[in-house]
Design a protein around this nucleic acid. Structure first.
Length: 223
DNA sequence: TTATAGATTGCCT
DNA sequence: GGCAATCTATAAT
């Protein structure tokens, strides 16, 4: 039997949003292989006119910059990826497969193009608003349908209404509407697995998940 | 200028 | 489990 959703995960409950402050820039001024696992358990949030929406990050991937063949930065600096080469803590949003956006945060100092891809979060705030953004008519009640909100990088962006035009280059550490916060929750157990959906450097274990969390994308988490 | 692969998702069998 | 959708960046003519 699968554990009840939320049990063991929504430990801290819903924190007063006014107390949540963005993680500082220095958090991102490190190797993405450290930033990515450290982001697990943090909150990815957006302030909207309908209130606070988002949830707890449960899955991330590290991309290492120009020397990582799977990274967008591998081709060098272009108009598309220039945010990656800038200072840490900024949103890099790109459009993929003609259908979906993906959200990353730049890491390391200016000139270094490392980043972390956000792949999934556990919905906590604004379930109704995020359902609307995802085009879901009825509010999800069961784990299986709650997973449809933000388990996967494309779904995650749609749930938060993230697009390249509106969010690429946005400072995630400042007073912008999009930010990442620490509410004190600590991920019980973290695992590193191969990255998803890539063909180059596919054997590198640079995908990080909260072990056993039902909101991780894909079918099953390897431990 | 044309071709192709892509850090995905959802619908079909 | 297979594959179409749909568009963009980049490689190939």
């Amino acid at each position: 039997m699968r554990a009840e959703v939320g049990a063991g995960h929504q430990v801290t409950g819903l924190v007063d949003s006014s107390t949540l402050k963005p993680l500082p820039r220095r958090f991102y001024d490190r190797d993405p292989r450290r930033v990515a696992p450290d982001l697990l358990g943090k909150l990815l949030l957006r302030r909207t006119t309908a209130g606070l929406i988002g949830g707890r990050i449960v899955e991330t991937e590290a991309y290492l910059g120009e020397n990582d063949p799977a990274a967008h930065a591998a081709a060098g600096r272009t108009a598309r990826n220039e945010v990656l080469f800038g200072p840490p803590g900024y949103a890099y949003v790109y459009f993929i497969y003609g259908n979906h956006y993906c959200l990353n945060v730049s890491c390391l100092p200016e000139g270094n193009a490392g980043c972390v891809l956000f792949r999934a979060f556990e919905p906590l705030h604004g379930i109704g608003e995020m359902s609307k953004n995802r085009g879901l008519i009825e509010l999800p009640q069961r784990p299986a349908t709650l997973r449809m909100l933000a388990s996967g990088p494309g779904r995650l962006c749609e749930a938060l209404a993230i697009t390249r035009v509106s969010d690429n280059g946005k400072d995630l550490t400042g007073a912008s509407d999009l930010f990442i916060a620490d509410d004190g929750f600590a991920a019980p157990k973290v695992a590193a697995t191969p990255r998803v959906g890539i063909t180059k450097a596919a054997s590198e274990r640079l995908r990080y998940v909260i072990v056993g969390n039902p909101f991780v994308s894909g079918k099953r988490v390897r431990s």
